[in-house]
Amino acid sequence: MKLKSMVKSMTKVGLGLVMAGSVLVSCNDDDDNQGIAPNDQTIAGIVTSNSSFSTLSQAVTKAGLGATLSGNGEFTVFAPNNAAFEASGITSATLATLTTDQTKDILLYHTLASKVASSAVPAGPNAKVTTAQGDPIYVTKDARGVFVNGWKVNQADIMASNGIIHSIERVLLPAPGNLVETAQGNENLTYLVAAVVRASQGNTNVANVLASTEGLTVFAPTNQAFINAGFPTIASIQAADPDVLTSILTYHVVGARAFSSDLTNNQALNTVQGGTLLVNIGNQVTIKGRTNSTASTVIAPNVLATNGVVHVIDQVLLP
């Protein structure tokens, strides 16, 4: 399984909870955490000795990165604890299905090949930083703390002898492709994909815009959201007026990369369609269209694409 397919599969696992190469140094696949001393204060030693990082420790062992992360160098690791793995829908059983190389790619996406304390994180918002895996993460630092791809660092500056650890609230996954490819990889967004294809048969090639424009945010309605909005089947979408669909779809697109960390209560988001969306932040983040009677709930935030971010929502937004 290639990394791109694996990331799509891992993304589906995370979404299922709510809806149903660069390297650091040359590593041998036989490397593991064996031999790490109990009082080892390297990154690997701290992760191995801390029970709250036991799932991450399992991943480090499988990836063969124990020797690297306990060796010389200056590294930064954004480290998901057990709760972060669970919240991301990734279990020990999930990790067991991955190969060594796949696990290594995921872990290197959490790693920088230099030591970066929280005080040195660029303010951004969403400053682009290249990981040891080769793909970028997007970091923001403000009065609330540090955010990576929209997820909060819940414990910063855990000092290690060979670098620094920042505990983060979710597992980070590299983008599986552009915004269209990201939607195509999610079985809960097949109606949305059909709508994009049909809209592109009109005056605007919506698929090309979503695939090629840099820095967009898409609020992506689930299949059930389209059904509830009066599109009972994909055939009904395929029979709709392409230009009407274009107006609806572009109302779901914001012309800037906006992770959940960029959203504020009562914020008005300007859409590509020209209208605005109203953000409300309470126990959950909701997005309301101008003529919607109720707000839509963001049920899967911060799904990274190569040219933007997707937030899955449970209602179609109406201009």
Rank of each mutant, 00 (worst) to 15 (best):
Ile237Ala: 02
Ser57Val: 12
Leu173Gly: 07
Leu318Gln: 15
Arg290Thr: 15
Thr264Trp: 00
Gly89Leu: 14
Val206Pro: 02
Val254Cys: 09
Thr276Trp: 08
Gln315Ala: 07
Pro301Met: 11
Pro176Thr: 05
Ala194Thr: 14
Gly16Pro: 10
Lys141Val: 07
Ala127Tyr: 07
Ala256Arg: 10
Val25Ile: 03
Asn186Asp: 11
Gln34Met: 15
Phe147Ile: 09
Leu269Asn: 11
Pro319Gly: 12
Tyr251Arg: 04
Gly185Thr: 08
Gln284Phe: 01
Leu65Thr: 09
Ser236Asn: 12
Asn228Asp: 15
Ala256Pro: 05
Ser54Asp: 04
Ser167Thr: 13
Ile299Cys: 06
Arg257Asn: 15
Pro319Leu: 14
Val218Arg: 08
Gly45Arg: 15
Leu172Trp: 06
Asn33Trp: 04
Gln201Met: 14
Lys288Thr: 13
Phe219Arg: 08
Asp314Pro: 12
Asn126Glu: 13
Thr94Arg: 06
Val309Arg: 09
Leu56Glu: 05
Ala96Thr: 11
Glu74Thr: 09
Met159His: 11
Lys4Phe: 05
Asn302Trp: 07
Lys2Gly: 04
Gly282Lys: 03
Leu216Val: 15
Asn265Asp: 03
Ala195Asp: 08
His110Leu: 07
Gln315Cys: 01
Ala207Cys: 04
Thr48Ser: 03
Ala67Ser: 13
Lys104Leu: 01
Ala156Glu: 00
Ala59Trp: 03
Gln267Ser: 04
Lys4Gly: 00
Met19Phe: 01
Asp30Lys: 07
Thr42Phe: 00
Ala20Arg: 15
Thr233His: 05
Thr130Leu: 11
Thr190Ile: 10
Lys62Gln: 12
Ile227Ser: 04
Thr131Glu: 13
Glu214Asp: 15
Val116Asn: 01
Leu192Asn: 01
Val171Pro: 01
Ala295Gly: 11
Thr42Ala: 02
Ala194Ser: 09
Gly66Ser: 12
Gly21Cys: 05
Ala67Val: 11
Thr94Trp: 00
Ala235Phe: 02
Thr291Ile: 15
Ala113His: 01
Val77Tyr: 04
Val153His: 10
Gln184Pro: 01
Met19Gly: 11
Asn50Ala: 05
Leu318Asn: 13
Glu74Val: 02
Pro232His: 01
Val206Cys: 05
Val116Pro: 02
Gln201Phe: 03
Asp101Asn: 06
Val171Gln: 07
Ala156Arg: 02
Gly64Trp: 06
Asn154Ala: 00
Ile46Ala: 06
Ser212His: 03
Gly89Ile: 12
Val139Thr: 09
Val279Gly: 08
Asn154Ser: 00
Asp157Glu: 06
Glu86Met: 04
Gly150Ala: 13
Gly215Ser: 10
Ala220Asn: 09
Gly124Lys: 10
Leu65Gln: 13
Ile165Thr: 11
Gln238Glu: 12
Pro38Asp: 10
Asn178Asp: 14
Tyr138Val: 12
Tyr191Val: 12
Asp262Met: 13
Asn186Ser: 10
Val148Ile: 14
Trp151Asp: 15
Ser92Tyr: 04
Gly21Arg: 14
